[in-house]
Simulated assay, not measured.
Amino acid sequence: MSQKYVAKIVSLNAAAIGTKAHGTAEFIQNDDTLEIKIEMFDTPANTQHWEHFHGFPDGKDAQIATMDQDVNHDGFVDLPETEPVSGTTMVPFDDAPHQMNIPNDNYPVSDEHGHFSYQMRVPLAALRKKFKEVFGTDDLQLEKRVIYVHGVPESLQLPKTVAGEVGSYDAHVTLPIAVGKIEKD
């Protein structure tokens, strides 16, 4: 039996970054696979875009961040500012989501028009096993998650107040540019 989930992805930080990223995501969960399709438009061009679903390990319903989450009033909602409403980064949409290796260079890169599409078929047993190892449950609870798309060019001037360093990656990589609530279709 399969279950379909969708997300309408809307821009975040558009005024600060100069593009209004938007798109759609579709997740089809079958008995043994999770099929993921994401298509984005008007993202910063020629830029790698980290994308993940975020949520709360305790099953609390995650919500999308808005400019209301800009608690330090620097004009940007950075990754740490999303956590109170959206939870933590959970599953990456890279070349191996089931490995849950968040910081890497294997995410989609937008073209010169700011467009990219991502498709992946993920082995559900492997993803659930890793998810349980990290979060204590194997229930992905997609309807309680949000999807984030991240990434702006290094040339964009960010205030020193913008946080979000992950390993050797700085806030240019992790700055959210779009977000969507995942819902059952």
Rank of each mutant, 00 (worst) to 15 (best):
M1D: 08
S2H: 11
Y5V: 02
Y5G: 02
V6S: 11
S11W: 03
A14Q: 12
A15P: 02
A15K: 14
A15E: 13
A15V: 09
G18R: 04
A21N: 07
G23T: 06
T24E: 10
F27S: 05
D32G: 11
E35D: 14
E39R: 11
F41A: 13
T43F: 00
P44S: 04
N46F: 00
W50D: 00
H52R: 03
P57I: 08
D58H: 06
G59S: 00
A65Y: 06
M67T: 01
D68G: 12
V71C: 09
V71Q: 10
H73S: 14
H73L: 12
F76V: 01
L79T: 01
P80N: 03
P80G: 05
E81D: 07
T82C: 12
P84R: 07
T89Y: 01
M90V: 06
M90L: 08
D95S: 12
D95A: 11
D95T: 13
P97G: 08
H98S: 14
N101K: 13
P103C: 14
N106Q: 12
S110M: 06
S110K: 08
D111A: 04
E112T: 03
H113M: 05
G114L: 00
H115Q: 09
Y118W: 02
V122F: 08
A125K: 06
R128C: 08
R128F: 08
K130Q: 12
K130H: 05
F131I: 04
E133M: 14
V134Q: 13
F135Y: 15
T137G: 09
T137V: 10
Q141I: 08
L142P: 02
K144L: 07
R145E: 03
R145V: 03
I147A: 01
Y148G: 03
H150E: 10
G151N: 04
P153H: 05
Q157A: 15
Q157R: 13
P159W: 13
V162D: 04
A163W: 10
S168A: 11
Y169C: 01
A171Q: 01
V173T: 10
T174I: 10
I177P: 00
I177N: 04
I182E: 02
K184N: 14
D185H: 13
